[in-house]
Amino acid sequence: MRAVLSNFFSIAISFVFAACVGSLPANAADLGLMTSGPSSIGNCSEIVFTCENGRQYPLCPIAVSVVGEVVTASLHTGRRGATRVRLIPMGVGYRYAGHGVWLDGFRENALLNFGKHNQVACTILRS
């Protein structure tokens, strides 16, 4: 029952969130994480996710678009080292997904998922 309620609230919050921001024009920062440009490739200190579990997860860009959008990156989760993640186009916000981990976010807020039932809320700490 708890899982059903949790899923219901997650879906309800998603719909409210989409309704609130759906009317806003999207710019590049809404579609993915932005860096200072191609010179940021391999720089693990520029984008760091600070999460409610007290841990920090750096995102190290591997490929960056011409406008500075991170296309592929290494997400350092600590236990297993780095996991390669790729930008998946979304209507609102961004999603970076890799093997066993994915990151859903909008601007500086994100949810880091380590599987179906293990997620933690995070914010982006930019250097």
Rank of each mutant, 00 (worst) to 15 (best):
V4Q: 12
S45I: 03
A3Y: 11
L112A: 10
N43R: 08
P58I: 03
G91A: 04
H76W: 04
V71L: 13
T77L: 12
F8M: 04
G91M: 11
K116A: 14
R95D: 08
N7Y: 08
C122W: 15
R126Q: 10
S6Y: 07
A26H: 05
A97S: 13
F49I: 06
A28L: 01
A26G: 10
F114H: 03
L59A: 06
A82I: 07
S127H: 12
Y57F: 15
A26R: 14
H99E: 09
A26I: 06
V16N: 13
S6W: 04
P25V: 09
R84H: 11
A110W: 07
F9H: 07
R95L: 12
N109E: 14
A73R: 05
S65G: 07
N118D: 13
T50L: 01
I62P: 08
M1E: 09
V85L: 15
V64G: 04
A12G: 04
S36I: 06
A12H: 07
T77F: 02
D104I: 06
W102E: 12
L103H: 01
F15E: 12
L33N: 11
A110S: 13
V21T: 09
A12I: 03
C60H: 04
R79Q: 10
S40G: 00
M1G: 14
P25S: 13
E46W: 01
G115D: 05
D30S: 06
Q119P: 00
G105T: 13
A12C: 11
A3W: 00
L125A: 12
Y94I: 10
F17S: 14
R107E: 13
T83M: 12
Y94F: 15
I13G: 11
A110P: 11
E52Y: 01
P61L: 10
L5H: 14
S40A: 15
G54V: 04
L31W: 01
A63W: 00
Q119I: 02
C20P: 03
G32E: 05
V16H: 15
Q119H: 11
R126W: 01
